[in-house]
Design a binder for these strands. Structure first.
Lengths: 219, 219
DNA sequence: TAAAATTTTTAGATTTGTCTAAATATATTT
DNA sequence: AAATATATTTAGACAAATCTAAAAATTTTA
């Protein structure tokens, strides 16, 4: 189905809201999209006409299966681009969202599948959100803090909860980034610090505080 | 200057046309953009108001310095994305143009500069067209056929004039792609065939016919 | 449960980019 | 240079996406 950029933005937003609440209503979507309630009503009519959502006047609305499928395609594109921007171009987490908002509307299927393959079919984006696969299935992966990772077991860095300049400085020092392969060699009970090893790097030690902010996933 | 997607397309098209003819006229641009002459006139008024072109009713028009600068930014983005699609994602030449038409409108300067750096600041896109630098200067690089390249001198494959499936098959076999570093070790006068060497690959021999269709640039 | 408050929808405008058809200007031909 | 042909612009309309203000429906409250 061919959708306008605007329609795509509405669908994605409705999806995000309905993940949290049972029914989405006009005002909450208007607030979320920073627009007027009247605009929401206008667009709802269009999306209902295109059979992407259930919508009964004054009662709220919800994406149907077809709408959810479209939403997941857009979310997939968004998160793959975010991954690309961080993992390949070395951009910072905070900056990639707005750019991915634009890139996500480029809809060539071949482009997205090639990009996915090029990135190594990642399952989690730089903010730690799961990336739907090409069929629209969300991967079921648990993310755990580095200090909860079992010893001597390689995992992949998926996100970092503290994004302060100090944290970024330290991660850069250690060469830890999204997608880095990492394992814990030893854990020091005294202060929670960990001896770790990154693929193709010498082993080193990081503090327990840092370890709690680094999230990984295990396959 | 913030421009709409449509304005960007007009500017880029005017630039392309005025490279060939002194003055661009309404009908030729209408044909080029596959739209009506009336639409052209409408947009010209807007672009004139934004001081991007010289335009005198019934007399044709031309981008001024400011307009050319904008055009070169868009062309830079387009060609960098084309390079990315071919060199990194492995897409075929014929397919990348339309996708780059969409990607080129994502205008984050930081994105483009990081992408440029990531790609190794290429000077020529997969179709052999030069990529303007971040200041809007077109690189002055001569492209030469591989059989005109001086011996034992590394050059970079910049384009291939014959894009038949057979040619692509052969290039894949030799592992020759856009951006490949290549040098000619020996030339056989009998049939024009060349002994070549690709960086990190063993030497091999290609026919004179193939060599005439492979273009390289020398720095 | 009736009044007040809130939410949602409708009505009518606006902007952007497009169109067709008619009008106007320029160019060509005889 | 008048008639004809071509190119360009204007006038008026339309679709998409938005807005404000007013109307209608629903919910809350007293």
């Amino acid at each position: 189905m061919k959708l306008s950029e605007s329609e795509e933005n509405y669908i994605k937003s409705i999806y995000n809201l309905q993940e949290k609440t049972e029914k989405v209503n006009t005002n909450s979507l208007a607030k979320y999209l920073n627009t007027s309630a009247a605009s929401i009503t206008d667009m709802l009519k269009k999306l209902k006409f295109k059979k992407l959502l259930e919508y009964k006047k004054y009662y709220g609305f919800r994406l149907n299966e077809s709408g959810k499928k479209e939403a997941l395609k857009i979310i997939r594109r968004h998160r793959l681009w975010e991954f690309f921007l961080v993992a390949k171009l070395g951009m910072e987490w905070e900056k990639v969202h707005d750019i991915a908002e634009e890139l996500e509307h480029v809809s060539s299927t071949e482009l997205i599948e090639k990009l996915d393959h090029y990135l190594g079919k990642p399952k989690i984006d730089p903010h730690g959100d799961p990336i739907p696969d090409d069929k629209g299935n969300m991967p079921v992966l648990k993310q755990i803090a580095l200090n909860d990772l079992q010893l001597k077991h390689y995992a992949v860095v998926s996100s970092v909860s503290n994004q302060s300049p100090e944290m970024i400085e330290m991660l850069n020092h250690y060469n830890i980034g999204i997608g880095s392969q990492i394992k814990v060699l030893r854990s020091f009970g005294f202060d929670g610090s960990l001896e770790i090893k990154l693929a193709r790097k010498p082993e080193c030690i990081i503090s327990g505080i840092a370890a709690k902010n680094i999230f990984v996933y295990d396959n």
